[in-house]
Design a protein around this nucleic acid. Structure first.
Lengths: 197, 197, 197, 197
DNA sequence: GATTAAACGAGACGGTACGTCGGGTCTTGAA
DNA sequence: TTCAAGACCCGACGTACCGTCTCGTTTAATC
């Protein structure tokens, strides 16, 4: 407040209160999602747990959906690094492993569900989350092509979808586990194909 | 009510009225799902549209979820044939095309979403629907292996997941289209692999 | 249940539950109005005190206003008898005294205030309450005219308004007391006039 | 603050900017009251229409009530002259006509309603407005008594209440019109009485 | 003409109450 | 027995105002 030697002299020190509140609420949301699940994460609950008034939440986020989405996006951002080991197989393995872990998280599952519940009447701001992450992973394939590891006409998007798709399906539909053997199997299948050699 | 000369002796007597009502309600549900979406398919709406009292629906199906599930399962059953052309590539293409069409249906999408919304507190009766269909498709791969078209150590489940997964992902998350080139690309990628040859 | 010898065979014995609830809620409203005042009579308060769910109240009365109005109208109906002693002065005195007492009641004051708050956007269902009561009192004047006690061209409505008006004004605006000397003064002034005789 | 040679010793200096703001806001309040009614005159509305920040209004008037009251009092003050023609009937006619016109105004009606809404929990600063005006009108009656036009024991307050009361009642409760024949009828009835002569 | 205290702009937040929606249960009368 | 009809319970969502608080900025009177 009085610090004259503050590192950012021109930065407006405003918005302190609002920012604190925002963090507190979003943190509470993520925590509740993990412990109580989606249905248990009601606005009233969040408000109480965060020590904030319900109306304040509605003022800022307008709807429960926005609130939860914001929480998840904020907390999950930058959680999926794109590896670059120089070997495409290794890159895909690491990427898929991270993705699998993310999906297995409480937050991951919550965001997945929300992404699916996109209502017709709602403009969409959720699908993009996952699409973006898959989009960014395409570079792994491109680098493999450049290095000659993969065929020149390989479709990066297709490869990423082929390896990542089953993970989502398992999480969303079958509930089957997402272990390392699955990941390795998928990567190898996609790289080498099922034909006998 | 007690019709003794009923033509079908094995059919449980009674239930005449109930059966008509059941069909009417389930049909209404499917129609509403297509036109109003999942959120718009409320018990009250269904009751009104079907000319039935809400209470009767609750009596029979107990919860809204059961109702919708029943409707979808009834309408969608046996809608996914497993082709057998003698060529694994062709079989996979046909299977995936059917699956894509099914998913693109209003009912298909509705069932998909419902399958995802499985709450922690709810015992699951939905995942199985899709798992079963994928399970049955494994035979396509097995036949390919037997014919020598595929490597002997090919994991049938893995192949099916690899080709089908992206379809689900697109339907649920990205909303990207499910066209023939996607299907062909997936099948070829999975069969031949991405390595240069 | 099956009572064939029921005394009122044609009367629908329905609505038992609803009626009990209605009485309980309306009674609670009147009581709260007396003790907590208008502002303290909130839907939530009423619901709690009546042991009824809030939404049930909204279902039946739709708005708080309707609820309170209904309560007051129900409780106050037929609370204002029109006397007929054969002497116009006596009739007016008694009528005014009743009216004053009614106005002084908690319910009376509440209904008065509500009657005034008639919003422009609302079709009116309140003004009539008091207008009706004044309307019915006109007969007192008419009988006085017939008996020759009052001038033949006396306007009954005018007389009633002249004697009753000040009571309302005191209750609504000045808060001055409504005692017997006021009532007597008003009646005599209206009957005899202020001119010296 | 202590300026000794200040021309107006009692007038507090400062407050130049504030005065412009004050007029703007109060004017807006009255206008909104006329067009939108009491319920539509919310602090936010006033602030927006007056081009002033909400907080500034709260700072100055503390509550919405004070604001509206201040607006009305300022705009309505000195709007009700006490005539003195030398003839009591004429004086009463003129006074009542002015009063009727005032009541019919948007501001008049607004003030009337506010006067009525005085809540138990609120100390009263409104009733006095109308009481004062009626109080001042008593002199009309007193002058009539002095001139011998009215009986010596005439109660001035009673006469004023008797003629003015019905006007308020019509405005507040019945919504009936306040025309000249009503005014004349009331005055004559109160002066001459309803007895046959 | 620079300074300084009061007033104002701006934006949250706390708090109360209203009204709505939808899922699910219970009771009663009638077929 | 089954079903129609109508309430009711219950929990959650979203909205509208009123009033308070904090901080930065302008304005206007004073030095």
């Amino acid at each position: 407040m009085h610090g004259p030697q503050s590192p950012e002299p021109a930065v407006p020190p405003l918005r302190r209160r609002g920012e604190r509140m925002r963090r507190a609420v979003l943190g509470t949301v993520v925590e509740l999602l993990s412990t109580q699940g989606l249905a248990g994460t009601t606005v009233a609950t969040v408000a109480r747990a965060a020590g904030v008034h319900e109306t304040s939440i509605y003022r800022r986020w307008r709807t429960r959906e926005n609130l939860i989405l914001d929480a998840l996006a904020t907390e999950l951002d930058a959680a999926l690094p794109i590896p670059d080991t120089g070997v495409v197989r290794e890159d895909l393995l690491r990427f898929l492993t991270s993705l699998g872990r993310l999906i297995a998280t409480a937050q991951g599952r919550a965001l997945l569900r929300l992404s699916v519940e996109r209502d017709e009447t709602l403009e969409d701001r959720r699908g993009p989350y996952w699409s973006d992450r898959l989009e960014r992973a395409k570079v792994i394939v491109r680098r493999g092509v450049e290095r000659g590891e993969l065929a020149a006409d390989t479709d990066p998007g297709l490869v990423i979808e082929a390896v990542a798709g089953p993970l989502f399906v398992r999480a969303l539909l079958s509930g089957a586990p997402l272990d390392d053997t699955l990941v390795a199997g998928l990567v190898d299948l996609t790289l080498e194909g099922a034909r006998p050699r």
